[in-house]
């Protein structure tokens, strides 16, 4: 299963607006996407509550997995999104 690592770029962590933007993007892929800390149980990346409950802080590493057609491209987009400071962007 395709898997990629990202570092949380948002200064507030993966929370509030950054979490909402990420979840919307994950939903937009139409795939089953999961996000989690390395070596821990992942959560559903299309669930805003799941993603927020993960509580990923600024600078933390997270692992993304996806299954289905176009999973590699979808993951690349999501990794890019996570690496940016989404809270600072308008």
């Amino acid at each position: 299963m395709p898997q990629r690592t990202a570092t949380i770029g948002s200064s507030v962590g993966l929370h509030a607006r950054p979490a909402a933007l990420f979840v919307e993007a994950a939903q937009g892929t139409g795939l089953d996407v999961e996000i989690g800390r390395p070596g821990e149980d992942p959560v559903d990346a299309t669930s805003i509550l799941g993603v927020m409950a993960l509580g990923a802080k600024h600078g933390e590493e997270v692992v993304l997995t996806a299954e289905g057609d176009g999973a590699d491209a979808a993951l690349a987009g999501l990794v890019d999104l996570l690496n940016r400071d989404l809270d600072a962007e308008e």
Binding site: A20, E24, V43, T46, I48, L49, G50
Partner: peptide, 9 residues
């Protein structure tokens, strides 16, 4: 609204 539509919830 996003919370209300959340699959996890």
């Amino acid at each position: 609204a996003m919370i209300a539509r959340d699959k996890g919830l």
